[in-house]
Structure formats: C-alpha cells, structure tokens
Design a protein around this nucleic acid. Sequence first.
DNA 1: GATAACTTGCTGATCAGCAAGCAAGCTGCA
DNA 2: TGCAGCTTGCTTGCTGATCAGCAAGTTATC
Lengths: 221, 221
Amino acid sequence: MAANPERTRNPDRSRAAILDAAERLFADQGYEATSLNQVGAAAGVSRGTPGYFFGSKLELYQAVLDRSFTEVREAVREGRARALASNEDSETILAGAVSDYFDFLAARPNFVRLIEREALSGSRLPEGASLSAGQEALAAISAELGLDDAPSGEAAQLLLSIISLCWFPLIHARTVAPAVGVGLENESLMEQRKRHVVALVLHGLRGTPLSTTSTEPSSHD
Amino acid sequence: MAANPERTRNPDRSRAAILDAAERLFADQGYEATSLNQVGAAAGVSRGTPGYFFGSKLELYQAVLDRSFTEVREAVREGRARALASNEDSETILAGAVSDYFDFLAARPNFVRLIEREALSGSRLPEGASLSAGQEALAAISAELGLDDAPSGEAAQLLLSIISLCWFPLIHARTVAPAVGVGLENESLMEQRKRHVVALVLHGLRGTPLSTTSTEPSSHD
DNA sequence: GATAACTTGCTGATCAGCAAGCAAGCTGCA
DNA sequence: TGCAGCTTGCTTGCTGATCAGCAAGTTATC
C-alpha cells in the first residue's frame, strides 16, 4: 500500500506518468472533479508530487493540453504534407483526409473529451493559450484546401460538417448512437460508420455547387 | 444585499427559480463546479433553500434533467404528429424534420450542454434514469421514420449524421466554427448553417441506396 | 555534501448536509 | 371578528469532509 521505497528516482518518468494520469482523469471526470490526490495515486507518486513538478493544478491542466496540442499539431503537419505530395484528384484527396481525420480522432479519445470539456466551459485558460493552437491548425487546413476564399463560405460549411461527423460519434458512442441503432463498439462497426461519413461528405461535395454566389437562377436550394 | 424581507412566500415560484438557476449553472459550469450557494444566490433565495426543496444536490440535478426531458419528450411527440399528419413526399418531410430539429436544439442551449456533459462523464444518475427518456424518444423517431428495420443500418447511420450535424455547431460555435471560418453569431448565420445541413442530408439521402439488402429495391415509404 | 526528487504534516478555504430557529399564513374554535 | 396553535417556507449556524497549496522533512544521486 505504501509507496515502494525501492523505487528509483526518475523525474522524466514521473513527469510523464503524472501527465498521463492527469490527461486520463481530466478527460474522464473533468477538471473540478479531479483532485491532485487522485492524479498522484494514478501516477504512482504521492499526493504532493504533481504540485512539485507542475506548480499548481491549473498549470498541470495547461501542461496536459499543451502536450496534446503539440502532438496534434505534428500529426496535422504530416497529414497536410501527405495530401500535398499526392497527385490524386481532389475528391480522392478529400475522401482520404476525412478517413484519416476520423481515424485520428478515434485513436485519441482523451483529446476529444478534453477539447469537448474546454468548449463547454468556455476555456479556463488565460486567453487563447493552447486552444488557439488547435484553431490555428484548423485554419491552416482550411486555407490549405483552398476552402476559405469562397465568399459564399460553402466550403467552410462542408469542413465544419466533416468535423461534426467525425467528432460526434466519439462522444456519444454510448448515449445517442445506440439509441438510434448505430453500434460503435468494435472496430468493424466504427469502420462502417466511417464509410458512411466519407460517402455523405462526397455526396455533399458533388451535389453542392461550390461557388454559386448569385449566378445560378434556377436552383431552389 | 440582504434578502428582501417584503418578499411574499411562494413555493412554486421558488422551486421554479431554483430549477432555472440550477439548469443554467449546471449547463454552464458543470455539476462539480456549481455549489448550492451559487444556485441559491442566482435563484434569489438563501443557501439552504435548494436543499430544502430538493433534498440533495444530486436530486436537484436529477430534477433539472427530468424537467428538460419532459419538455423534450412533449416536443418530440408534437413533431412526430405533425410529420405523420402531413402528406408530403418523404424527402420534404425529412427536410422539414431536420430543419425543425436544428431549430429545436438551437432554442435549448442549456439542454444541449447538459446532455453533452452527461455523455462526457458517463451519467452520474443511478442507472438509465432520465437519460433513457431521451434515448427512448430517439428510438421512437427512428422507428417512426421506418429507419430501423433495414438490417444494413444505412438509415440509422443517416439519422446519426443528422443529429451530429445539428448538435455540433451549438457546442462549438465559439471554438471550432470560427476557426474554420463559419460564423454562427447571429440568426442569419445560423440560418445559413441550417440550410447547408439540410442540403447535405438530402444529398446523402439521394445518393445512398436506402435498402440495398435483398428486399424490394424500389418502394420506400 | 550539495542538490534534486520526492513525501508528509499543516492550514485556510470551500462545500454539502443537517438541525435549529423564525416568521408567514392557514385552520379551527370561541 | 379575533386569537391560538400548527404547518410550511425559508434562513442561518454548525460539522465533518475534502482539497489545493505551502513548508519542512527525508532520502537518493551526482
């Protein structure tokens, strides 16, 4: 029960263990419901160690978010490079990007939950700290895909739809999804969901005239 | 600053004021971050009154959810009756239902946030209490639209997509939406978003074969 | 032996729940 | 009509628990 006295000291390992534990606990329970006591216990250190390394609870939380965003930023950069390098047609690129984004989020449930909690509580971080990094990444994607120069904003709307479709099932896999008869419990069911999302986005891309400000007279959209 | 001594007693008004205040505070800050002190102050009663009327903090929370779900259940019943009464073609009905659902959620930001928090924390309610009411309502809709007997689940997938698309912008109106260049600040921008969602769903409906299992390929009422 | 890596004891603050108190208004009775 | 007594709405003081942060202690490692 007591902390193992044989354990060797290792600040790097302790920091990482604390960040891991805090990420999971903050994501599962939220900031207020998580105590530094819990974090320490889950990380295999004492109650005071998180404070020793990170100063305060808020700073620990910020460090968790920072680490997540750094990881996300790198993944986004890689994904963008891959998309640019390919010379497929834009529809295939979009389908691949949606699929990748879906998988990316599915592999990072803690990240999704943390951001969702941030969005719900209107960010307890000073001002545009880590969160702006995520927004910056999204803005970069949208610029990269040439989706931001259409004044109609139709492309931006589609991007927001893509994010909605990939994001939502991860949060509501145990609430809304089963209620409407969509199972998401195993990998093949998630794959099925992903195929539906990709198909829906492609139908939307084909069906929507991407730059019709006031030209088309007949369409009754 | 002190409570107005002129104030007449009125348990109904007090109960309602407490429920209103608690709904807003729980939705904005979450369960843990909200104290009964805050609830009392926001409701114009003393610190102890919420406990007097509702027993405990958890019971107050449950009462807030119950009231929300009752309201939602009634609205769903009305919407269903309206859809059944109309004799438009199914595509028009679906478009109207999506539009109504979008407006319905947009008019109930507290409800959306409460459910979102519930989903994130895995329901602190005993077991399938209020939440199942919402699931029940969704299941009813899906059955009503005849979307649940297709073994392929394509229709259920589309329903989940509809919910995702209507739900997401309400939570991320201040985070993701501006980052991708979609404004949602005023009514006309929300209207624009709604039109996009309806159009996307209709494209999905047209583009996807709804019953490609082994039954009748043509008739789908 | 110095410094860094922890742990443990302490403190003040906050909070939920309880219980005691108080007063407004009703009910029954003269 | 008036008053006594009771119920009910609501407040306030108290208690035990929890928690974040700090400071002082302890031990490994360089």
